[in-house]
């Protein structure tokens, strides 16, 4: 009752505060998306910008709207694109799974240490962000190269006779992907795990559940939202990743980011690139919207608390 009254009094201010994130999303997500969508329906043109406009006001007041569906048609008909989307999703999925498998124990361990040491460990997780992302990928190149640090060392101590194929293949691709995205998995997982009430585990133990059983019946289900958040933080950017496959991936690595780059800069085909991007966004948004609805339903359930 009291809280409702309080909210009522705050209403004008509250509306303004709530509108800020919506405004942000509109400006930096929805508007750019519609620009991309618009370009995807255009045709390539030798002009600046290099595409035709959709609307032409002709003499006599006739408005011509030209929607070119050819790009989408091409994407759907040429199975090169289907393969690329699939392999991008696959790579992102694998990266997400690896990040989860590695990140969960790390996040769990950090959440269970005493608060003083916890901050140091969190700092270590975030430390890579202090150097440029590109620099870190180049560092990996220096490590994995045929005559890079690792191979030179292995050759020098005589463990191998010829350099190991560590570079420009799927191994190096996934290694660097997992390396780059791991912090994005650890941080949301940590923030969920650290909030967990230790007494729940004591209660589980008291009721006869050993540590492993307690982990799977209590800790894991209760950190579900952290797993979802971390997985999205890794999966979504990983699908469109360009730099890592370009720099450390193999010659036959198919990633949608690379295709986008080619269409934009090599073929100068903006409408095609825009269509590729649009399809990718749709591929990502549909499952996320589904997840989001699921989440809000859960939250609404909790509203009775």
């Amino acid at each position: 009752m009291n809280i409702q009254r309080l909210f009522k009094r705050l209403k004008p201010g509250r509306g303004a505060v709530i509108s800020i994130p919506y405004f942000w999303l509109l400006l930096f997500f929805l508007v750019p998306f519609f620009i991309v969508l618009k370009i995807s329906f255009a045709e390539q043109d030798l002009a600046i910008p290099p595409f035709t406009s959709l609307m032409n006001l002709e003499e006599g007041g006739l408005l011509h709207i030209t929607l070119n569906l050819g790009n989408f048609d091409f994407i759907l008909s040429d199975d090169f694109y289907a393969k690329t989307y699939l392999s991008s999703l696959q790579a992102a999925l694998f990266t997400t799974l690896m990040c989860l498998l590695l990140g969960y124990p790390i996040a769990y361990a950090i959440a269970r240490t005493d608060p003083a040491r916890r901050n140091v460990l969190l700092m270590l997780v975030m430390l890579p962000f202090w150097t440029s992302f590109l620099l870190r990928v180049y560092a990996w190149m220096g490590l994995l190269n045929e005559n890079g640090l690792i191979n030179s060392f292995l050759l020098a101590i005589g463990l191998v006779d010829e350099p190991l194929p560590l570079f420009h293949n799927n191994f190096s691709l996934y290694l660097v992907m997992v390396y780059a995205y791991l912090p994005f998995m650890i941080l949301p997982l940590f923030s969920h795990l650290v909030k967990m009430d230790g007494r729940l585990l004591e209660a589980a133990s008291d009721l006869g559940a050993g540590p492993i059983k307690a982990f799977f019946t209590i800790t894991l289900p209760l950190s579900r939202n952290g797993i979802i958040a971390g997985s999205m933080m890794v999966f979504i950017p990983a699908v469109g990743e360009f730099v890592i496959p370009e720099l450390v991936g193999g010659p036959d690595t198919l990633m949608i980011g690379k295709v986008l780059w080619n269409e934009f800069f090599d073929n100068n085909n903006w409408p095609m690139a825009a269509a590729v991007a649009t399809v990718m966004v749709l591929l990502l948004i549909v499952p996320i919207a589904f997840l989001h609805r699921f989440e809000t339903r859960q939250l609404e359930g909790k509203g009775n608390e």
Binding site: R199, L200, E202, A203, D206, L207, G210, I218
Partner: peptide, 28 residues
């Protein structure tokens, strides 16, 4: 260990498992 003892405890804060129904809590 706690899970080996024929002893059960009711916690001050109850420590009910939030993701389980009342029946599942009791069945745990």
């Amino acid at each position: 260990a706690p899970y080996e003892r024929p002893i059960n405890m009711m916690f001050q804060s109850y420590a009910l498992f939030p993701h389980m129904s009342v029946a599942d809590n009791i069945a745990f």
